[in-house]
Write a protein that binds this DNA or RNA. Structure first.
Ligand SMILES: [Mn+2]
Ligand SMILES: [Mn+2]
Ligand SMILES: [Zn+2]
Ligand SMILES: [Zn+2]
Lengths: 156, 156
DNA sequence: CTCCTTATTGAAAATGGTTTCCATTATCAA
DNA sequence: TTGATAATGGAAACCATTTTCAATAAGGAG
């Protein structure tokens, strides 16, 4: 378990204490799992991975913790259309990691992309401004996903 | 019931016959319901509305028909995060009606918007082209949703 | 360090939207 | 009109997620 920098433990300890949440074994294990992958894990995926570190952690706790992390803004929750929610750490060790998704409608593969984000962001901010004004809406975030067939699935 | 043009019945009859699907009472009722609203109906919403026209239609048939219509491209299926799928006719009587959504994370209200679509579409096509090339992906469609608080919900 | 409050946990049961089963019905080509 | 079979509907199954509740453990007070 990578402890590490500063003196108080991992970076998110401060967030937890600040919000009055306890730092528990299950929570540490779940965050460890999330921080060690680039994949978009389902609750069950997280559960199975956590199980290897700490077999006593229950699926219920995984769901609860993921919800907490989403509420805290530490984790993003996505729906790629396969009937289960997917989770992903919001910020990597290198800071923010905003990106959008490319989803294969055949095999379910999900690709993160960031290369066109800059242009998109610019347009999005314009659009958000226009929409906010017109509909008197406070926009907090957006979702952009492209659907289609990945290279492996397009051949047939 | 808007019958209408040509001689064979509503516009979608041709699509059905062409695909070898039968034109049944439940299917007619469901399409009638969908074509008479601008809302984003859940399967249960459709079921209840259909029930008024034709009380014998079952919820199972509603689900089956909606799936069929989605597969045929006549209906769009969305997930606005409230745990149930939402359906919307893909094309109104005036033809295509592509639009994106503004979703209130507090009350669940969904607003269609089309006014910034043109700029978005242009950027999206660029992005799609770039992504297709880079990831060798065949992009068929996209999803764009803005989340936030609607005017009624932002006051507090 | 020990105690105490109570946030957190895990197992089991409940929930709720959606799908599957299957015997019955109704569409439509011949 | 008739027959093959696509379509239907009610009940049961499915399955991701949530709720319940008694047991546990985090962490501040002393
Ligand atoms: Mn991602
Ligand atoms: Mn819409
Ligand atoms: Zn694929
Ligand atoms: Zn609202």
């Amino acid at each position: 378990m990578p402890r590490g920098f500063g003196h108080g433990g991992p970076w998110w300890h401060t967030r937890f204490r600040g919000a009055g949440f306890r730092i528990t074994v299950p929570r540490q294990a779940i965050l460890e799992v999330l921080s060690k992958t680039q994949k978009h894990l389902s609750a069950e995926d997280v559960y199975m991975a956590v199980h290897r570190i700490c077999p006593t952690v229950g699926l219920t706790t995984v769901y609860r913790t993921l919800e907490l992390l989403v509420d805290m803004g530490l984790v993003f929750k996505f729906d790629f259309g396969d009937g289960r929610a997917r989770y992903e750490l919001a910020l990597g060790p290198k800071g923010e990691r905003h990106h959008h998704h490319l989803v294969c409608t055949n095999c379910g593969r999900v690709i993160d992309y960031t290369e066109f984000i800059d242009d998109e962001i610019e347009l999005l901010q314009q659009t958000e401004k226009g929409l906010s004004k017109k509909y008197n809406f406070d926009i907090t975030h957006h979702l952009i996903q492209f659907y289609g067939l990945c290279d492996k699935c397009k051949g047939r």
